[in-house]
Design a binder for these strands. Structure first.
Lengths: 338, 338
DNA sequence: TAATTTAGATAAAACCTTTTAGCATGCTGT
DNA sequence: ACAGCATGCTAAAAGGTTTTATCTAAATTA
């Protein structure tokens, strides 16, 4: 019953040829190694007959390549990350790579552990959303010559490839949108974070606000795991105490979802009473009544660039790792009912 | 620069001890193998010093176990699957397993290819949402003694472990809910599919409808990939021609999202004009105005049972694979504004 | 004292590939 | 008749582990 996996050795023995010969045939090097058609046919037929599949593990060991890439997201169940995961998967598989995923929860310790776990696993590369204070681990990976590509945010202190979007510029435009629509008292709702994507969004927003004839507040929620219960209560309190607010910029869609509920509870009408823009578009902004204006990140393009960068690093035989830094544009999807 | 990874052999050479000794120490078998404290200390210190990490690939080859499980979802970017992925990840990592994911798009050919690709990769097990007509491949896996656990749906023709939910019963209850609320003309919106989860939902709905004093229609959309553009237009046409419908049961949340938009466009008010129930709850049903009643699947429990079943199979040294079939209860979240 | 046990360690096989270097054999050209 | 070459194939090393069987020297037992 327990059919043992057949190996190259078994084939060789059964057919009375050498292991080498079989290997050459399997790898399409038969011709160039001048194996006779007769033998080729015999081996190929036998392989088909017994359904031989080479052991990838043995290949990995021999070749030092596993054809596995790690995708370290903040939280794979978050729509943004799972969408990217989907695209990445497609592009990876097309190139013969498989993806192992994991979620950091933006927890530095967890991320460090994960990285260290994978270092021993002969994975070929890392695609990572860096957590705070992860610089050292990333630097380590690079020193050990692992290809690394960061995304969503980057680490100013580490010279590492990354694919990010124009956070600052888009936040500026989002704020400008509110201003153009006539908002006078803006709020920027964000989470407490010193990571680049958040800092950039904040600074973009503020620049637009400062340049205009408006007042603005920044409301910084303490950090919540994406998977935790939402900060609805906090937002409710905030909006309750700020009746004058007539334009809100949410720094992430997750904040927007909670914020919209809070605004709704308070009877603030959108876009009549208060106008809203969110960073990071979502299917539901289009479904919500009223539809919500949002800044859309180019998910597929991000994924494409991620894999492109990864593959280019994987192909570099050279010792030198030359980081590539990609910055992509977003789209402001205006959705106010006119 | 190019620091070569240090192997057990390097350690042995550097310290003038044998490979075996080092291996025993690394694997905590030093005591039982009577290695002296002196040597143990020397080796452990050296390991720490050079930052040795064992090669998992070599271990896999030697032990025939990779500590990798494949998670084959229909579409990892779909909220249902990505949520499960997240839970599975947690439970897998806790037990020393890593997860490789892939998406089938419910495409049989693609699924077959993926399965065949992974068979050669020495993965330890498969968690799969089976596509139509995949029976043979699954049977193959089982014959080759791979642990397999199906979920979301199962294959009546294959004796294989699975974790599913009470589709029939919950659909019955969902329909009953509409009936209790006074609906007289029901519609069951589904996609064309002969897979168990859809068939069961349909039959549950119909049973409730037949037992009651109501009329009902089943509207079967042709299959769409989850990632494709939605069937909004089709639903619009359907509802337009059926003004009498006052209760709709959507067989998946994805259909509900599109259907809600269609109903909205037609000015049908919920729950005044028409009442709605969806299978498979979603964050947004709670956010939508009005809130939408939905049947919630126990995502974490599903994941738990999946891993539990998988781990139990992985632990079975025996030749016989004894399938375990788990069926879990759902929750009807009633959300009509009273 | 001889026989046996124990402590402390190791050699070598096995897991499955890929690939380099090389071995016969027969043929060509001179 | 012999160097040189093409043909068709193979031995063996390497990649990094784990584990079984074994080995030596010292300690214990009879």
């Amino acid at each position: 019953m327990a059919k043992k996996r057949v190996s190259i050795k078994d084939i060789a023995k059964a057919l009375g040829v050498s292991i080498t010969t079989v290997s050459f045939i399997i790898n399409g090097k038969a011709r160039e190694q001048r194996i006779s058609d007769e033998v080729i046919l015999k081996v190929k037929n036998y392989i088909k007959e017994v359904g031989y599949k080479p052991s990838h593990v043995a290949q990995s060991l021999r070749l030092g390549k596993s054809k596995i890439i790690v995708f370290m997201a903040e939280d794979i169940s978050n729509q943004f990350f799972s969408s990217i995961a989907r695209f990445i998967e497609e592009k990876a598989y097309k190139n013969g790579y498989k993806i192992i995923y994991c979620s950091t929860d933006n927890d530095t310790e967890k991320a460090k552990e994960l990285i260290s776990t994978f270092q021993m696993r002969n994975v070929d590369g890392f695609i990572i959303t860096p957590t705070p204070n992860i610089e050292e681990s990333i630097q380590d990976l690079i020193k050990e010559e692992f290809p690394v590509v960061l995304f969503d945010r980057w680490l100013p202190k580490v010279d590492c490839s990354h694919v990010i979007v124009e956070n600052r510029k888009s936040a500026f435009e989002g704020a400008q949108h509110l201003i153009n629509k006539g908002c006078k008292n803006l709020a920027f709702v964000t989470v407490q974070s010193s990571q680049t994507q958040m800092v950039d969004r904040s600074s973009g927003f503020k620049e637009a606000a400062r340049n205009a004839d408006v007042t603005f507040t920044e409301f910084e929620l303490k950090f919540h795991n994406l998977s935790e219960v939402g900060p609805y209560e906090e937002l409710l309190d905030f909006f309750k105490s700020r009746e004058e607010i007539d334009g809100v910029f949410f720094a992430t869609n997750y904040l927007a979802f909670e914020g919209l509920q809070a605004l709704d509870s308070l009877g603030r009408e959108i876009p009549g009473h208060v106008k809203v823009v969110s960073f990071d578009d979502h299917y539901f902004f289009n479904l919500y009544k009223p539809k919500i204006t949002a800044i859309e990140q180019p998910l597929e393009l991000i994924s494409e660039k991620l894999m492109e960068t990864m593959l280019s690093h994987l192909d570099e035989f050279t010792v030198g790792y030359t980081p590539r830094k990609v910055v992509l544009s977003n789209t402001l999807n205006e959705r106010e009912s006119s």
